[in-house]
């Protein structure tokens, strides 16, 4: 994001007072093998999903804390976005989905042997949540278990 000082007063204040789950320290799991041998998955909070999957829906309690599976072999033409926020510029993702979901770039890196390989699945959540409790305690750990079951070593996280 551009530095806060270049934003409008409204946007700046919204971001300054946005509720965050604050912490004093970080968990730490170092990569146990070379990057070139690691299995990598993308997890994005861009609100993406397959065209025939259900869009994110705020009608249901917790609906914004759900996630969608994006198989690595899915055609990017079959991925759409139902993010709730209009505070970001969609022209970028209309032009190129890699701007927020760099699936083609990760394919490049796997071909170049910079990373070992892409995981079978990537995952998408809704971003800009004011309450992350369900994600932190339920759907996030669920996806963590899925990633582990799928042999993932490294998770590359992107916002929108």
């Amino acid at each position: 994001m551009p530095r806060l000082e270049v934003l409008s007063e409204v946007q700046r204040r919204m971001l300054e007072f946005f509720p965050c789950m604050e912490s004093d320290e970080s968990p730490w799991s170092p990569l146990g093998k070379p990057l070139a041998e690691s299995i990598v998955a993308i997890v994005t909070t861009a609100g993406l999903h397959l065209r025939d999957d259900k869009p994110f829906n705020r009608d249901h309690p917790g609906g914004e804390s759900t996630y969608r599976i994006l198989p690595s072999d899915a055609d990017t033409a079959d991925i759409v976005q139902s993010h709730f926020s209009i505070g970001f510029d969609r022209t970028a993702i209309y032009r190129d989905i890699n701007i927020t979901y760099p699936i083609d770039r990760m394919r490049d890196l796997a071909e170049q042997r910079v990373i070992g390989s892409l995981a079978p699945n990537n995952y998408s959540f809704m971003g800009a949540l004011r309450d992350c409790t369900v994600v932190a305690e339920q759907t996030g750990p669920e996806v963590a278990q899925r990633l582990r079951d799928e042999g993932v070593d490294l998770v590359f996280l992107t916002p929108t």
Binding site: S26, P27, S29, V43, C132, G140, V143, A144, V155
Partner: peptide, 14 residues
């Protein structure tokens, strides 16, 4: 938050 959840589960995150 997700990065912290995944790292706690033993995954490396960036």
């Amino acid at each position: 938050v997700l990065a912290r959840v995944f790292e706690t589960a033993g995954l490396t995150t960036v």
